[in-house]
Each structure stands twice: as structure tokens, then as C-alpha cells.
């Protein structure tokens, strides 16, 4: 009986794969001394949380998973057409924060979000805000490539179809082709659009997922470690792609690779134990970190 109930809840836990529950435990065992240090060093975020042209603004965001306080008082602005990288050790809350930005945490029942997050001035957690409409504006690319078990065409066409973005087949074709083109995948799949999306290689699948996301024409793209399952060549292609995409979209990317953060982002936010420790221009964070914890992390002493 107990076993059945456990199974019953299992998917909840899986859905919260990116949550801090398990990571938190690991962290507690691994780096207890930093917990002390963090309290000593205070909770003020150092650097510049504000930016010139703010588009998405998080003010004093707190996230609880049941009793677990995963995000603590995070304030961060994300500008139009900039790439912000969220870095930090496992379980620091960066993925949780990312998932707050398009309300993906809604599907986890125990999650509770307080504080305010605004998109272009409008509160995304207000009662009037429909998460469906929000997610059409704030797209997401996941850690593991997750194309639908449908054809390549249908994968890209799915978003426009459900939102009714194309009035006829020709328009849909145009959207699909341009999205694949912008994701740098069109050349490779042009002749086999009706083959299943799952038949592609890992890197191609991830670009398909990006094409699927930009087909809806969002304003912000969230990327949750998009390259962690890819080889270096595929990673390089995705990074090039991000460089092009940031001309049109704001991109928030969670990454474990500091090199990647340094390559693709304009600003870097360093998370630690749910606190946003330091935010600044990428060059500044990597060459001259202001906070002791940031320095320890980028020099490899934590993580």
C-alpha cells in the first residue's frame, strides 16, 4: 500500500527533477562550511542587479518547496535582447529561478512563489495572467532534448497550431521553415520533414527544440542547461545560435559550464544556496569577482 502511494507521488518528484530537493541533501553533506560562510558574508547581492533596458524584472522572489526554502529574496532584471547566464553549484536554485520566469513551477503542487516577477511591466503571477499566454511569450528549452514523438514538421508546427498563429497551411509552412532556418537545422532536415523528430542526433534534437520554441515567436527564451547532454561540436553550434538569437530575444540560460557562460552571456548571475550572490557584466565577474563565494566558485573551489 505504502509502495503504491509512493509510486503515485513519484511523478511529482520527477516533474520537479530540477528542484533542489535531492541536490539540497547532497549539498548539505558536501559543503557544510560554506553554509556558515554565507551567513557571515551577508545577503546583499553585490554587483548590478539592474540593467539599462529592463524587460523581465524579478523583485524579492522567494520560492518554497514545502518546507524547503529554495530561492531567497532574489532581485534581478533581465534586459531586452541580452543573454543572462545563471551559474552556481548544484542545488543553488538557478533552475528553480528560471522555472519561475514562465511559471513552470505551477505544475509542482508543493511549490510556492512570493515576490513579484513582471514581464514588460505586467505581473506574471497576477490572477489575470494566464500561464498559457505567458508561456507563449516566454519559451523554454530543456536540459534533455525532448522532441515530441511526431514528425519534425509537426514538432515545429505544434506551438503555432495550438496558438492559432497560422491562418493556412502555406503560412504554417513558412513559419516552420523560417524557424528551422533560424535554428540552423533547415539544411540538414529539409528533405525529411516528415521523419520523426526522435530520429535526429542529440544536437539536432536540441536545435529542433529551439526551432520549436522560436516558432511561437516568444519574447524571452529560457534555457535550462541546453548543452549538458551534447558533445562539444553540437554545443558550439547551439552557442553560435544563441549569439544570433539574442538579436531578437532576451535569453536566460542556466549553465554549469563557466566557459559557456563566459562565451555566450553579457551578464552573469551567481547563485548560492538560494541567494543571488553576485550579478554583473560577464567580463567583470570572471576577471574581477567582488564576492568571496563567486571567486571561490569560478576558481573551482566550489562546485
Amino acid at each position: 500500500m505504502v509502495a503504491t502511494l509512493k509510486n503515485y507521488r513519484q511523478r511529482d518528484t520527477e516533474m520537479a527533477a530540477n528542484t533542489e530537493n535531492t541536490a539540497e541533501k547532497r549539498r548539505k553533506a558536501a559543503v557544510p562550511d560554506y553554509h556558515e560562510q554565507e551567513i557571515e558574508l551577508g545577503r546583499e547581492t553585490v554587483g548590478h542587479v539592474r540593467c539599462e533596458e529592463p524587460f523581465m524584472v524579478a523583485e524579492n522572489v522567494n520560492v518554497h518547496y514545502g518546507d524547503n526554502h529554495a530561492i531567497r529574496d532574489v532581485t534581478l532584471e533581465i534586459g531586452k535582447k541580452e543573454v543572462v547566464a545563471l551559474i552556481g553549484p548544484s542545488g543553488c536554485g538557478k533552475s528553480t529561478f528560471l522555472r519561475c520566469l514562465n511559471r513552470m513551477n505551477d505544475s509542482i503542487e508543493s511549490a510556492r512563489v512570493t515576490g513579484s516577477i513582471t514581464l514588460d511591466g505586467a505581473d506574471i503571477y497576477s490572477k489575470e495572467q494566464d500561464p498559457v499566454a505567458l508561456r507563449a511569450r516566454v519559451g523554454m528549452v530543456f536540459q534533455k532534448p525532448n522532441p515530441f514523438p511526431k514528425s519534425i514538421y509537426d514538432n515545429v508546427a505544434y506551438g503555432p497550431r495550438i496558438h492559432g498563429l497560422a491562418s493556412d497551411r502555406a503560412e504554417l509552412d513558412t513559419i516552420v521553415h523560417s524557424s528551422l532556418e533560424r535554428a540552423g537545422l533547415l539544411k540538414e532536415v529539409k528533405d525529411r520533414l516528415d521523419e520523426p523528430g526522435t530520429s535526429l542526433s542529440g544536437g539536432q534534437q536540441q536545435r529542433l527544440c529551439i526551432a520549436r520554441t522560436i516558432a511561437v515567436n516568444p519574447e524571452v527564451i529560457l534555457m535550462d542547461e541546453p548543452c549538458s547532454a551534447l558533445d562539444p561540436i553540437a554545443t558550439a553550434r547551439i552557442e553560435d545560435l544563441m549569439d544570433e538569437l539574442c538579436e531578437d530575444y532576451a535569453i536566460v540560460i542556466v549553465t554549469h559550464s563557466m566557459q559557456q557562460a563566459a562565451r555566450v552571456s553579457r551578464r552573469v548571475a551567481y547563485f548560492h544556496l538560494g541567494y543571488l550572490v553576485e550579478v554583473d557584466d560577464t567580463d567583470k565577474v570572471f576577471t574581477n569577482p567582488q564576492h568571496k563565494l563567486t571567486e571561490d566558485y569560478i576558481t573551482g573551489r566550489i562546485g
Binding site: 498559457v132 495550438i162 520554441t213
Partner: peptide, 17 residues
């Protein structure tokens, strides 16, 4: 239950109800 959660997340992330 056996349908992978990643498929659900992908659809939710695109704005499916």
C-alpha cells in the same frame, strides 16, 4: 504514468493547456 515527464514539460513550455 509511463509517459515521460519531459514530453509534458515540452508541451507545457510551448504554452499548451
Amino acid at each position: 504514468k509511463a509517459v515521460p515527464p519531459s514530453i509534458r514539460e515540452a508541451a507545457l513550455g510551448l504554452g499548451a493547456s
